[in-house]
Design a binder for these strands. Structure first.
Lengths: 168, 168
DNA sequence: CTAATCCCTAGTTTTTTACTTGGTTTATGT
DNA sequence: ACATAAACCAAGTAAAAAACTAGGGATTAG
């Protein structure tokens, strides 16, 4: 399990989708603005998420991305593996040929660590995350900003903030 | 806790030192050959290890590096932190200002993961590692090769392998 | 038909990692 | 005293990876 900002972007984006489940599909443009990341870079990440069966995209106006599975069936580990194709922490990538074709001194250590990290992230699903109170809190704050950006009238945002139900 | 090849190099090198404790100090040249890594790069890593109080170097012929503390007082986490100065997994580095000065959606997730990784690696000392049978095994194999390189006579290596005590 | 959206490929820039060069300083043995 | 083996140091360069850009399609709702 490799951990980079790439994986972080992907998880945050997927969580974004998760939080909007049941509404209209989420556009990458939307996520790009929200997460302050380039649209094209996001497209590349989502290409991998799609190929790994984690999201489904629908084209055309009103289109966007939706999760391809239930919230509880998408683990954080699966998201990170999808975007960060290379898998583990060991130099050799699971093969035990790190040093002159033999195991290096610390092979087992890194293998164990990889496993721990994987188990941790595999034990957490998008469903788990969206149920966390602190995530809901942050999500609501962002929803407010998002509404403001869509309407283009930032002045009214704070007023509307309490009555968030979102038409469409 | 950031995990890169840098940290791996450092841990392997420290383990190398640990395995030779009590003998003469280990030269970087020695480690460089053993680990197939450039001498100067190693020097840079050891500069940080020294500044962090993990090793002591002695100059001049017969010099080299020794551990600055007891085996059981050096955790793997401390080694990795020493060479990879930046600490954690979150984008913001512990500050919760990942997004427009506020916590991003996944802040807690990465913070938790960081903690798990840290705890795991902090719970393992060099002492623990050198006592592992598989490490001892690999170490012996390498010792054989090392002796061979020093003497320049690879033929006799296997014979000497069992009676390893090293003068000095 | 048009615009919004996904989809795809091939770049470029930036950052990080790994390495190189070319020293200086300190201790040892002859 | 001198040569040598080592740590120490600084400034660069090369290579790889991460992050982003550009510029096109292809689909589909309206």
């Amino acid at each position: 399990m490799r951990l980079t900002t790439k994986g972080r972007y992907a998880v945050t984006a997927m969580l974004d989708l998760a939080l909007q489940e049941g509404r209209r599909p989420v556009t990458l443009q939307d996520i790009a603005v929200n997460q302050e990341i380039s649209l094209s870079y996001l497209e590349q990440l989502f290409a991998r998420l799609r190929r790994n069966g984690l999201v489904r995209g629908t084209r055309g106006p009103g289109g966007g991305y939706r999760l391809a599975k239930e919230l509880d069936l998408i683990s954080i580990a699966s998201i990170i593996s999808a975007v960060d194709e290379r898998a583990d922490m060991t130099r050799c990538g699971g093969e035990a040929n790190c040093q002159d074709g033999e195991k290096c001194l610390t092979h087992e250590l890194w293998a164990e660590l990889s496993e721990k990290i994987y188990d941790f992230l595999d034990g957490i699903s998008l469903g788990d995350l969206v149920r966390r109170p602190e995530v809901l809190e942050v999500a609501e704050r962002q929803e407010v900003v998002r509404q403001g950006l869509r309407s283009g009238r930032l002045k009214t945002v704070v007023v509307e903030a309490s009555s968030l139900t979102s038409s469409n």
